[in-house]
Design a protein around this nucleic acid. Structure first.
Length: 307
DNA sequence: CGAATTTGACCTGCGC
DNA sequence: GCGCAGGTCAAATTCG
């Protein structure tokens, strides 16, 4: 089994708009598993905007190529085009030609044995909507965060390798960062069964909301009871199994990044991989996401992105 | 008393 | 090679 890269990051839209933080894109550094995901606030580039933002030169250099430069309102089409071309060239220069020699890029490399990961930011309510039973096996203080990270193993089925990390956001203590690693090797438990393994858990089970999926792979997950607004799913890497089905996906993924745009609400707009495929996640993956929080898949976002 | 949690020790990967 | 940080183990503790 090959190594995996960070696969997806999901966050409530209210925490992913232009006034807060955005996904800026992914950098394909050397291999699939070396892809780095960039979460960043646009205000990182305006040090005067928010004095609470910890800002370093390194972060500045790291994120700046991905910051979407606002187009001047009075500029004509040619000016717009020049800015876009210049911006895309800057991005390409950063992550397309020099990643192997860039110290910054090397610092983005992940541990080699990292497995595929799905990162979700949820509220406290969102923690309770996970249908799986988890058993805590460790807790560690994390550098740079005032909150420790807790480590959980799936206890629904013996031998299941699925793991979950729970970390409270140091930016907003109401937000919990969930990191899911590896797949469950068993069917999803019923709500009743899932409670069996967490009878001492602090979390309560909550009713699962209705969900539907039309099979179209999308980047937006619509309203969930745990959130007050739609949830944005942003994709940073590709499922390896799907990569095997698409020999040119490596090249495609690099191309994918360069065409990332934001819509008028600050959502990242993911491009098509080719005429037939848009996302490379399996249906099971999205079904699993829906099950995590009762999210409802919505294809309208992608339709909007294409228009 | 069994199962889950806590927590310090240990292991591993990575940068310098 | 060394130190740091993240991840895991396992004995002790807690809880129902």
């Amino acid at each position: 089994m090959a190594d995996w890269g960070l696969q997806a990051v999901i966050r409530p839209t209210q925490y992913a708009d232009h006034d807060h933080h955005d996904l800026f894109g992914s950098i394909d550094i050397e291999n699939e598993y070396d892809q780095a995901l960039l979460f960043c606030s646009p205000h990182l580039f305006d040090q005067h905007h928010d004095p609470t933002v910890v800002f370093t030169d390194e972060l500045d250099q790291l994120y700046k190529p991905f910051y979407q430069i606002p187009l001047p309102p009075a500029a004509d089409d040619d000016s717009h085009q020049d800015i876009i071309i210049k911006q895309e060239q800057e991005i390409k220069n950063f992550c397309g030609s020099a990643p192997r020699t860039s110290q910054l890029a090397q610092k983005l490399k992940k541990r080699k044995n990292q497995q595929k990961k799905v990162v979700i930011e949820v509220t406290a309510d969102g923690l309770s909507s996970d249908p799986w039973a988890w058993r805590k096996y460790g807790q560690k203080p994390i550098k740079g965060s005032i909150y420790p990270r807790s480590y959980y193993r799936c206890s629904t089925s013996k031998g299941c390798t699925a793991k979950r990390q729970v970390e409270q956001s140091c930016i907003d203590s109401n937000i919990y960062i969930l990191t899911y690693t590896a797949d469950h090797n068993h069917p999803q438990p019923t709500r009743r069964n899932s409670l069996a393994g967490i009878n001492r858990s602090r979390f309560k089970a909550t009713p699962k909301s209705s969900s539907s999926s039309d099979g179209d792979k999308t980047v937006t997950i619509s309203k969930d009871s745990a959130f007050d607004s739609p949830t944005t799913l942003s994709v940073s890497s590709f499922d390896h199994e799907e990569v095997l089905q698409q020999p040119n996906i490596k090249q495609e993924s690099e191309e994918t990044f360069f065409y990332n745009k934001f819509d008028n609400q600050g959502h990242i707009m993911m491009p098509r991989v080719n005429d037939e495929e848009y996302m490379v996640f399996s249906d099971d993956f999205f079904e699993g996401l829906e099950d995590l929080g009762g999210y409802k898949m919505d294809s309208s976002y992608y339709d909007h992105a294409r228009s």
